[in-house]
């Protein structure tokens, strides 16, 4: 009976979780090799060659990786600093409510809100103009749709940081970091040593999988880079959708090439991360 229900669970997982993903990947693969698709007329590798010759994909991928790494580093860094410094204050009901609030904010709202604040015609620019810091609104440095992706990174940090803050507070209590800090202190550790050698490593150790998963999630984020990103280079998801929506129908196959490459890359990364995590868990057991 138990094994029967296990098989049903496995079948449901395959049907709902893996089948649509697998079918979509197979379809994308066939499209990328010209086997299916309205403008295609049989197997060809020319779309793959085209994408690999152009450096748009590599550029876009690197751009996405750098933005995602910076966003995760800032989010984790700020959240950890706040969690370590103010953990007891953040557990008070009002502060707890305030720290949960940003989680209700959809990414698209944050993106539009940042345009209102950070663009050349935004609030900060107008404020700077009205107090005479700049002589015209156009002199305000462009912080959205900019080449350094400041707008995207600020938006990612605004969305992700509160989540990490709540996660770190929970792990802080669960791992009894205050008591471990007392032990470290009585063994001679200074507050800085306690933070560097005890609190930060434990928080990172316990949350490393979630941090990596968030990195992967940001790598594929769409709405925020679409609204706050620049024309070129674009983050990978925005680039894929742009390719798939081209009027030139042959470009759609190239879009699928990029989508397949991106999927394979992310799947491999996830596989490596989970295998590493599993091997660590098994060796500790």
């Amino acid at each position: 009976m138990k094994s029967k229900s296990r098989y049903i669970g496995l079948a449901l997982f395959l049907l709902i979780g893996l089948l649509p993903f697998g079918l979509a990947l197979v379809y994308a693969l066939l499209y990328s090799f010209g086997i299916v698709g309205i403008a295609n007329d049989g197997f060809t590798t020319k779309f793959w060659q085209q994408v690999l010759v152009e450096d748009t994909f590599v550029q876009s991928m690197l751009y996405s990786i750098v933005i995602s790494i910076l966003s995760v580093v800032f989010s984790v860094g700020i959240a950890m600093l706040i969690a370590i410094k103010y953990v007891s204050k953040l557990e008070k009901p009002f502060m707890s409510f305030v720290s949960y609030l940003p989680l209700c904010m959809p990414g698209i709202v944050v993106a539009f809100f940042l345009i209102q604040i950070l663009s050349e015609a935004g609030w900060i620019s107008r404020l700077a103009y009205s107090i005479g810091l700049i002589d015209q609104l156009q002199s305000f440095p462009s912080l959205v749709n900019d080449s350094l992706a400041i707008g995207i990174i600020v938006a990612f940090v605004s969305v992700v940081m509160p989540f990490f803050l709540l996660l770190f507070i929970s792990v802080y209590r669960q791992e009894r970091l205050d008591e471990l800090a007392h032990v470290a202190s009585s063994l001679g550790a200074s507050p800085l040593q306690i933070a560097i050698k005890i609190k930060i490593p434990i928080l990172l150790h316990r949350t490393r999988m979630i941090i990596i998963l968030y990195f992967i999630f940001l790598l594929g984020a769409y709405e925020i880079p679409l609204i706050l990103g620049q024309e070129s280079p674009q983050m990978i998801s925005v680039m894929v959708v742009r390719e798939l929506n081209q009027y030139d129908l042959t470009k759609i196959s190239e879009g699928y090439v990029v989508a397949v490459m991106y999927t394979i890359l992310i799947s491999l990364l996830t596989l490596v991360v989970f295998s590493y995590h599993r091997s660590k868990t098994v060796s500790h057991a």
């Binding site: 471990l180 007392h182 032990v183 202190s185 009585s186 001679g188 200074s190 005890i198 434990i202």
Partner: peptide, 17 residues
């Protein structure tokens, strides 16, 4: 506490995980 040279051991071992 860090300068006292006094070590406090709790009921739980509290090893650094």
């Amino acid at each position: 506490p860090a300068k006292r040279g006094i070590v406090y051991l709790y009921q739980e071992d509290l090893l650094f995980p």
